[in-house]
Write a protein that binds this DNA or RNA. Structure first.
Lengths: 273, 273
DNA sequence: TTGCTCCTCACGTCACGTGAGGTGGC
DNA sequence: TTGCTCCTCACGTCACGTGAGGTGGC
């Protein structure tokens, strides 16, 4: 009868020598005989099938413990069928998990791609544009701007999958106030009802001017100066509330680089009288 | 400023106390301050964002090492984008792997299901049936039946995805021979050419008799006796080669229980003269 | 002597979890 | 005193891989 040393058996089965020693130790696949003084392991041909079965089951992601119990009662077709069916479910679940991860990554990457596209064709000049009406969910507060992040979070938690765009902030003050501002944090939504301090409604559209601001928020003032100067030059009148759309800012997760923050200021105007 | 003990911080972030201590040790997320004599860890609110970022990235299956390097240069949007894109590929590959595993499991389960269906509607009686012609790839040998397993393996390796059914054995001897048999191991195939000792051709169909044999191969003799008696009774003549189709037997991987082996004997006959 | 294969034993991997044994403040 | 939270330290998990140090036969 054909006998193999561990090295030969390794080549015949595709399992490494280390793995074979480990399987021996674990009582999963014992050599046909072990030479007493040297400790050399010898395998005969009948072990090849078993080794292949183990390798096959490992390929199906069974644990060594599961494989051991499968091999112990491998003459019961029913048990085997059940183990395989169960494993099918386990694998299905893993695929589901990884799909979710892949979706999260895609969402992130798509966001980035869009931001890059905006950046690429961005004109950092005042533009005259008709603003479309927009269905929003908003929370209006008086206080510090810094708190608006929590408001966005609150709306996001409530509306989840109904969210359809970037967060925006409405400013009801004609002038700039640090700690005593009247503002409304909003998210575009595709449905839902007003409830518990959140107002769901359509934000009116109309002729307006816009300006894309690139950089940290503490420099937004300069852009406001530019856009308001433009409106004044044209003899138009700025309507309240003014809007800031946060195209790219600190995400929930990463702050990112403030130099690359991208914010669009939108102001509806009355046509010159 | 709000400070958290490790327990409070754990609740706020969803990370376990053990995990937080481990992240501290790893230099991934250090507490804001550590009380000297007691070793108590204290976290302030600013650490919550970082903890969330880490949890988010862990959810995307990044390793702690990768997360550490992402956090170190998290202000570079380009690096982050690259890391995410790379990770997207890693996840895609894992999904591919798991899909392959799922397919293997499905193949196995479908096979079992079919075998059970055959078993359920099986009639272990001689039947008269017209046998369809069948395209096969076969290796003919003289010698011991026991060697046919290797021949099947040889054909399977060569024809791989072209295989379209269960293995069958053609017997060219009129009588039973143990060690000096003339047989041909065949697999149904959908294409391919004859080459290197493998004959690809169409096996003729025609009127025949069949008998389903359930149990180990060493009891096939009884079924042969039954089917040949039937042919003789009808005044028909058995044509060579006779065929054995191994509907369920020892797979490449599992021997299964020989009591459940299922083999169909098929013999073409000349109509009574 | 060199090169090859085999052996054992101890330790590493990865991201934590478990549990023992102890402290400190209400 | 009991219960709670915090601490450190050592060990476990899973399926091997790495490497040191040594043997035995050509």
């Amino acid at each position: 009868m054909l006998v193999f040393t561990i090295g030969e058996f390794s080549k015949a089965t595709g399992l490494t020598v280390k793995t074979l020693r480990f399987y021996h130790e674990e009582g999963l696949l014992a050599p046909s005989c072990v030479d007493e003084p040297s400790g050399y392991r010898y395998y005969d041909a009948s072990k090849i099938e078993k080794a292949r079965a183990i390798a096959f089951l490992r390929g199906l992601e069974f644990s060594l413990g599961e494989i051991k119990s499968i091999l112990l009662r491998c003459d019961d077709d029913g048990d085997l069928l059940e183990a395989m069916t169960h494993q099918r479910g386990v694998i299905e679940e893993k695929i589901r998990q990884y799909r979710k991860v892949a979706r999260s990554l895609d969402d992130f990457l798509n966001d980035e791609k869009k931001a890059r596209q905006v950046m690429a064709r961005a004109i950092f000049e005042v533009e005259e544009r008709v603003l479309n009406p927009l269905r929003i969910a908003g929370i209006r507060r008086k206080g510090r701007y810094a708190d608006c992040g929590e408001r966005f979070g609150e709306i996001a938690r409530r509306f989840g999958r109904m969210i359809r765009g970037k967060p925006l902030l409405l400013h009801y003050d004609g002038d700039y106030r640090e700690d005593d501002a009247d503002f409304e944090a909003c998210l575009p939504v595709s449905g839902g009802q007003s409830a518990e301090g959140i107002s769901v409604r359509e934000l009116a559209g109309g002729p307006g001017v816009t300006l894309l601001h690139r950089g940290p928020y503490d420099q937004l003032g300069r852009s406001y100066t530019r856009i308001l100067a433009h409106i004044k030059d044209k003899g138009q009148e700025a309507l309240l509330p003014t809007r800031e759309v946060y195209l790219k800012g600190p995400g929930m997760i990463f702050k990112g680089n403030p130099k690359n923050y991208l914010t669009e200021i939108q102001i509806l105007v009355n046509a010159a009288t």
